[in-house]
Computed example of a mutant assay.
Amino acid sequence: MRDINSTETKNWKSTSVWIRGLFMILFGFIGGFARFMVTLIAVFQFFSLLITGNPNAALKLFGQSLNNYIYQINDFLTVNSDRYPFPLSGWPDDKSAYKYSSRDL
């Protein structure tokens, strides 16, 4: 049984928890901007389809890596990962980070 007057650091006094909280706020704003960028890519891809009949290949790859970045941010914000997203780690590749299974349908 723990003593109420123990000298253990309380969670709300922990510097690392407060630093993570600040990064959560920062990455929350970055995630909002990244989601706005996905919207811009979608609009541009739509007009590319209208004009050329084909999507822009470079934007498809960037859009996929941007989706993976948003996934990393959401993982961090929901405390499912302790890994800090870009720019504190590498930019995600353009391979899908989330794998669908038959249970997802």
Results as ranks from 00 to 15, higher is better:
residue 14 S to D: 09
residue 32 G to K: 07
residue 13 K to N: 13
residue 83 R to E: 08
residue 105 L to I: 12
residue 30 I to H: 00
residue 15 T to V: 12
residue 48 S to V: 12
residue 94 D to M: 06
residue 16 S to L: 10
residue 2 R to I: 04
residue 90 G to E: 05
residue 53 G to S: 14
residue 89 S to H: 03
residue 1 M to I: 15
residue 17 V to K: 02
residue 75 D to P: 01
residue 99 K to Q: 11
residue 82 D to C: 08
residue 99 K to P: 01
residue 3 D to K: 13
residue 40 L to R: 08
residue 54 N to R: 10
residue 39 T to G: 09
residue 32 G to R: 14
residue 100 Y to S: 15
residue 9 T to E: 14
residue 91 W to C: 10
residue 42 A to W: 05
residue 15 T to Q: 09
residue 72 Q to S: 06
residue 100 Y to C: 09
residue 54 N to L: 14
residue 25 I to V: 06
residue 73 I to L: 03
residue 21 G to F: 12
residue 37 M to F: 08
residue 37 M to C: 05
residue 31 G to P: 08
residue 8 E to R: 05
residue 105 L to M: 07
residue 82 D to L: 15
residue 62 F to T: 08
residue 88 L to M: 13
residue 60 K to C: 10
residue 1 M to D: 04
residue 69 Y to F: 11
residue 42 A to C: 03
residue 32 G to T: 12
residue 45 Q to P: 03
residue 103 R to L: 04
residue 9 T to N: 06
residue 81 S to L: 01
residue 102 S to D: 15
residue 25 I to A: 14
residue 21 G to I: 12
residue 95 K to G: 04
residue 86 F to N: 04
residue 52 T to I: 15
residue 53 G to V: 14
residue 82 D to Q: 11
residue 101 S to F: 14
residue 48 S to F: 09
residue 11 N to I: 08
residue 8 E to S: 13
residue 87 P to E: 07
residue 28 G to T: 09
residue 25 I to M: 12
residue 98 Y to P: 07
residue 4 I to N: 05
residue 30 I to Q: 00
residue 23 F to G: 01
residue 24 M to A: 04
residue 85 P to F: 01
residue 35 R to Y: 07
residue 96 S to C: 11
residue 16 S to Q: 14
residue 90 G to R: 08
residue 36 F to R: 06
residue 18 W to H: 02
residue 27 F to H: 00
residue 78 T to F: 01
residue 94 D to N: 12
residue 26 L to D: 13
residue 77 L to G: 01
residue 42 A to T: 08
residue 5 N to H: 11
residue 53 G to E: 15
residue 54 N to E: 10
residue 83 R to K: 15
residue 49 L to W: 13
residue 1 M to S: 06
residue 49 L to F: 10
residue 86 F to K: 00
